[in-house]
Design a protein around this nucleic acid. Structure first.
Lengths: 125, 125
DNA sequence: GTTACGTGCAACCCCAGGCTTGCACGTCTG
DNA sequence: CAGACGTGCAAGCCTGGGGTTGCACGTAAC
């Protein structure tokens, strides 16, 4: 539902520090070109272009041509969606831990053979 | 404030698909060993161990020895914190876009030389 | 004791991807 | 028109890290 491969792309995109710096610069300027951003980054213009390409495929950035230059700007939706996905997963984990703690504290007569394999609820895809 | 390098580690950890599968398995079982998880994954036990190591350094997973085996379990806090960080950034971007839209619609007498370099508010570190 | 199982360490292979350089094309300015 | 600027490919380099295999040690079961 939450586009699981979208999440994949976003996470992969955000994983790179330089890419986050590009995003920072972009968010600060509001709108900028590759060469402009490269001006205050320790890498070549082409590197920035490639990063922006990845970011755009991930939906974190959009671009449009304006004359002989290409303007980029940040795109919050995907990021927000990913944030919500992440919060949901965290909540699932939390619930899972509660179950474990309850089992541990309960005066359980069955010591359970080996693994704590419990065929209970499975987290959403 | 939100541990910027913690965010870095978490994002880097989550970027790998196999690593997310490990987390999935772990969350499903509630608690598991490396060999146990490797049983239902298409990689070797050692691969799983290395992934778990990364995840633990990122604070997404904790472990304790129990006899001759090491039990892992998911740790929601860091993930939740990262989710909140991400939501905050998304909100910042959103605000930034609002400013741009306002500037674009306003009957601006100044055509602004070249770049849309606006020395306004800077997003939090 | 011996056997079996799970772990931890180390060396190694291999490829994705981050970055560079070089060049050609399109667009604005004089 | 010529020149300057920004972009868009393409090829190439090189390191990081995901994966494997092999082995030695500690712990449990027999």
């Amino acid at each position: 539902m939450t586009g699981l491969d979208q999440v994949d792309e976003v996470l992969a995109a955000l994983a790179d520090p330089m890419r986050r710096r590009v995003l920072d610069g972009l968010a600060a300027r509001g709108e900028a070109t590759a060469t402009g951003l490269a001006g205050e980054l320790p890498v070549s213009r082409q590197a920035v272009v490639q990063h922006l390409s990845v970011l755009e495929k991930a939906g974190l950035v959009s671009s449009r041509r304006s004359g002989r230059e290409r303007r980029y700007r940040v795109e919050p939706q995907r990021l927000d969606a990913t944030a919500r996905w992440m919060a949901r997963v965290a909540a699932t984990w939390d619930a899972r831990l509660d179950v474990i703690r309850r089992l541990a504290e309960s005066p359980d007569p069955k010591p359970s053979p080996s693994t704590t394999a419990s065929p209970t609820a499975r987290p959403p895809r």
